[in-house]
């Protein structure tokens, strides 16, 4: 009877009005009883709203907004590598180390990035500027090795091209 106690507290106010409007646009794409289909978009939107990472409150808010169980939203948030559950740097450098990139020398790319940034895979630099992250295949195998920063792909990487990319990040 009293298991409902925790549910009474709404967490919806954690999502800004602007973010909510954007989520609604995604919800409208699906049948009304399939609201949960918008979960990936909703998580991306609230992550952007929150400066690049998801908090437990936001995951709970998304669950509430989409009528889903929190654990189901949490499963999605932990499955995909584009969601972050802890704060990340201003620039999140996602390096693919999957098979095609590995065969084309992603080990050397990772080594170079680690030396240049002074952090290991999975770490964020103290100044909060860079996060280095290992990801699985991003579907750009034709131009391996590759990495992703923000919404951009950088392909056919060499140590020299990496230096140029990093120099361009202010």
């Amino acid at each position: 009877m009293f298991a409902q106690r925790n549910k009474n507290q709404t967490k919806l106010d954690r999502i800004t009005a602007a973010a909510r409007a954007e989520i609604d646009r995604w919800i409208a794409k699906y049948p009304p009883e399939r609201k949960s289909s918008a979960v990936m978009a909703a998580l991306r939107i609230v992550q952007d709203q929150n400066g690049g990472h998801l908090s437990h409150e936001l995951i709970e808010a998304v669950a509430e907004y989409l009528d889903m169980e929190t654990i189901a939203v949490y499963e999605v948030a932990t499955f995909y590598s584009m969601y972050e559950l802890a704060p990340v740097g201003k620039y999140k450098i996602c390096v693919c180390t999957n098979i095609s990139c590995m065969l084309c020398g992603s080990d050397q790319i990772v080594q170079h990035l680690e030396a240049k940034l002074g952090i290991k895979l999975g770490q964020t630099r103290r100044d909060g500027k860079f996060t280095l992250k290992e990801v699985e295949c991003l579907g750009a195998c034709v131009n391996a090795p590759m990495l992703q920063i923000g919404n951009d792909y950088y392909e056919k990487l060499t140590p020299a091209s990496i230096d140029k990319i990093l120099a361009g990040l202010k």
């Binding site: 169980e69 654990i71 189901a72 932990t78 995909y80």
Partner: peptide, 11 residues
């Protein structure tokens, strides 16, 4: 839905 399977692959 108390139990779930967060994470992916090995994790």
């Amino acid at each position: 839905m108390e139990l779930g399977a967060p994470g992916r692959g090995e994790h």
